[in-house]
Design a protein around this nucleic acid. Structure first.
Lengths: 336, 336
DNA sequence: GTGAAAGCGCTAACAG
DNA sequence: CTGTTAGCGCTTTCAC
């Protein structure tokens, strides 16, 4: 059996409340007594039982994080941010993977609440999320992170997608490209973030007198980029497209792989740009020109806000916007 | 305030013990009473407070996982395995990232124990781990996962590295390569796994009458593979090396990137193989021929074993070995 | 089959 | 400044 506060109290010859006071610094304790207690603690190797503590204080120092799949590099990066700043404030995180199943997400919320977590961060990839409705009723701090779909019912952290897409398009235009494809997915969905990205792209194309072509993929994954490769290639040739701007790095990487496998040279034959700046973007060759979404920071800011709410510090109701950045690399070069 | 067992008891007109019995199925309860309780639970939306439960049962249904960095894809994969099978047994995981700092690791063990976790999995990248010494004293189930260094004082799960390296080398030889470099790192360290991999390589080279060259990198990272690129290239040319077998995928990817940047064609000019089968191995072009270490399974088996120990099922003391697999891809082709 | 009561380890009034 | 006491919400004897 582990050593408890009682053991310490006995050893130090004081009451358990006194011990409690010194470990929590909650009330003044005489130097002399404090020392006795500290000695006893050290000698016994006492560590307070956090579970017992939580029960009475109602503070678990636990934050629940529900992710789609920790195997996704951008999610891992967000979790890193969450974990690291959580740590700074003495919070541990409980990690649950939903694999995109909404019922699982809901179940996890219940589970996490029963474990008395003090806040929940949901990293989702769903369109409409019933979990959010559920969370609104509960008084527990909550943040919703979604790289693909917006949600106006709850606070989130993200970049300004329209602006980022605009800036990227402008950068491509400045490189001399005129015929530029934008590959999107599901941008007609009401809450799709693609809507904004397409808008940013269109706006820049208009201002820059470029000829734009919005193209549709069948999903957001590498696989989806690969599988539309031939169509993109045909279209690009037909319309003299010199640059393909993909709405996500995954698509861009898939597309580049298709190009590699089919002897299309990047950027000599065609330039490719992405969006996200996944780790792989700077590892793959040629390195991918892309918009950097600061995943780590998004996670960090999200948990920071949760902790603020927990501590009753004042926070804005609104979404938080972080700056994006154009990562200029070799997959997209000047038109000659 | 959340609804408690008391509320349910009152609503159902029974004692709290009865409620406890029905939610735990711990003792027979008459059908009639059971129904009343169940109804009350449903009506009130009651969820047992797991913290209170843990306090009395001493079972937190929590398993602590300390990782070096969740941003590493192989670690994320292990954590996936851990999380997913943990879930099957109703365990949640608490994730902590040590970023390779031993003191942090030790601190986390303390922290996790004070949160009453029922087991700890440490995913480390250190040579010698003081944490292990510390864990041996404690009676809490513990598994040590380390892709780089062995530890004979505690249970682990891994592949048979010597055999895997042997098989890979044999595969390369069978492709017609004779002059094969093996790039290693820190293989002279007492507990380095590289020692075994080099042995497997040497054995196969001997049997296959190949000419082997063991080469040293300055680390395990992509960056390290890139930075020895020129040396490898010079050496390979001098000794007519046709294939480079890297002790980790990271090194192989770094090397391939160097080759790309310097116009060395893979596999036409030289073949490259790796070890690990990180996600990127099959995304990068050319796709990397490599040894598949089943990270997901390693995590899954690790937590399964922990849960067995928790439940007093009998387990072997020995390390657990999982099968590896040669992933034959385009970075390594037949010599012509 | 059911209820009363003790207690898990700790914090937080409340006295003194 | 320090000790006593009452819970936190739940499980688990122990009676009946």
């Amino acid at each position: 059996m582990a050593v408890t506060i009682k053991d310490v109290a006995k050893k130090a010859g004081v009451s358990i409340s006194t011990v409690s006071r010194v470990i929590n610094n909650s009330k003044p304790v005489s130097l002399e007594v404090r020392k006795k207690v500290l000695d006893a603690i050290k000698e016994l190797g006492y560590k307070p039982n956090e579970v017992a503590r939580s029960l009475v204080t109602r503070r678990s120092r636990l934050i629940g994080v529900i992710v789609t799949d920790i195997g996704n590099s951008y999610i891992a990066e967000m979790v890193r941010g969450i974990e690291e700043v959580g740590r700074m404030y003495n919070y541990d995180i409980i990690l649950s993977s939903s694999y995109g199943n909404k019922d699982t997400e809901k179940k996890f919320v219940q589970l996490l609440m029963s474990k008395q977590v003090e806040g929940i961060i949901l990293i989702s990839e769903e369109k409409d999320n019933e979990v959010i409705e559920e969370m609104i009723g509960k008084k527990i701090p909550f943040i919703y992170l979604n790289r693909y779909y917006l949600n106006d019912k709850t606070t989130s952290v993200s970049i300004d997608n329209e602006l980022a897409s605009f800036d990227m398009t402008k950068y491509i235009l400045d490189l001399g490209h005129r015929n530029i494809m934008y590959i999107t997915y599901d941008e007609n969905e009401e809450y799709s973030i693609e809507k904004y990205k397409v808008a940013g792209y269109n706006k820049a194309m208009e201002e820059g007198n470029g000829e734009g072509f919005v193209f549709h993929a069948n999903g957001y994954r590498i696989q989806d980029g690969y599988s539309i490769g031939q169509k993109v290639l045909n279209f690009a040739r037909e319309k003299s497209v010199t640059c393909v701007f993909c709405c996500h790095d995954e698509l861009a990487i898939g597309l580049m792989s298709f190009f590699y496998d089919n002897n299309v040279k990047i950027p000599e034959d065609i330039s490719v740009c992405g969006f996200g700046d996944l780790k792989i973007a700077s590892i793959y060759r040629p390195r991918l020109t892309t918009v950097r979404e600061p995943y780590y920071d998004i996670g960090a800011v999200a948990i920071r806000r949760i902790i603020k709410v927990i501590n009753n510090e004042k926070v804005d109701k609104e979404n938080i916007y972080l700056p994006a950045q154009i990562m200029k690399r070799e997959s997209c070069e000047k038109v000659r």
